[in-house]
């Protein structure tokens, strides 16, 4: 079975490294870390991920803008994007799966929740 390709865009290198180690440790994923949001588009075009985890609050450019770029890029128009966000209230965490229609995960996130979210939003291989 082919491994799904996951790209994580977040300025926290410690976090992205752990995401990569955790996901690749399951044997089901191949993960690309991108800590510079300005490079996210180029990286994505090269890596061609099956799903992108996107931090919202980043220096220089926020997740929403990165997502907009990705959506206009032709080959990546259809790739599922999941936001990782720190700014979520108790109410939102309990009652919502999306912000403005986009799926999100609130930090901190447990590995099994992360895996479930990835599987929910990508096609089976």
């Amino acid at each position: 079975m082919e491994k799904k390709r996951i790209m994580i865009v977040d300025d926290e290198a410690g976090l992205t490294r752990l995401v990569r180690l955790s996901l690749e440790g399951t044997g089901k994923y191949e993960v690309r870390e991108e800590n510079d949001a300005m490079q996210a588009l180029a990286s994505a075009l090269e890596f061609r991920p099956d799903l992108i985890l996107l931090d919202v609050v980043m220096p220089d450019i926020d997740g929403g803008d990165v997502a907009a770029q990705l959506r206009k890029s032709g080959p990546l128009t259809q790739v599922p994007i999941v936001f990782l966000t720190a700014i979520v209230s108790r109410r939102e965490a309990s009652t919502q799966d999306d912000i403005g229609g986009y799926p999100f995960l609130s930090k901190p996130v447990a590995l099994d929740a992360l895996v479930k979210c990835i599987e929910d939003h990508t096609a089976a291989r």
């Binding site: 926290e12 410690g14 976090l15 752990l18 995401v19 180690l21 955790s22 440790g25 609050v57 990782l84 720190a86 700014i87 930090k107 901190p108 996130v109 447990a110 590995l111 099994d112 992360l114």
Partner: peptide, 18 residues
């Protein structure tokens, strides 16, 4: 505060799971 605290928390969380 939320941002600055939650990000390290996320790292710890995933580290524990890992």
């Amino acid at each position: 505060i939320a941002h600055e605290v939650k990000n390290p928390l996320a790292t710890i969380r995933l580290g524990v799971d890992f």
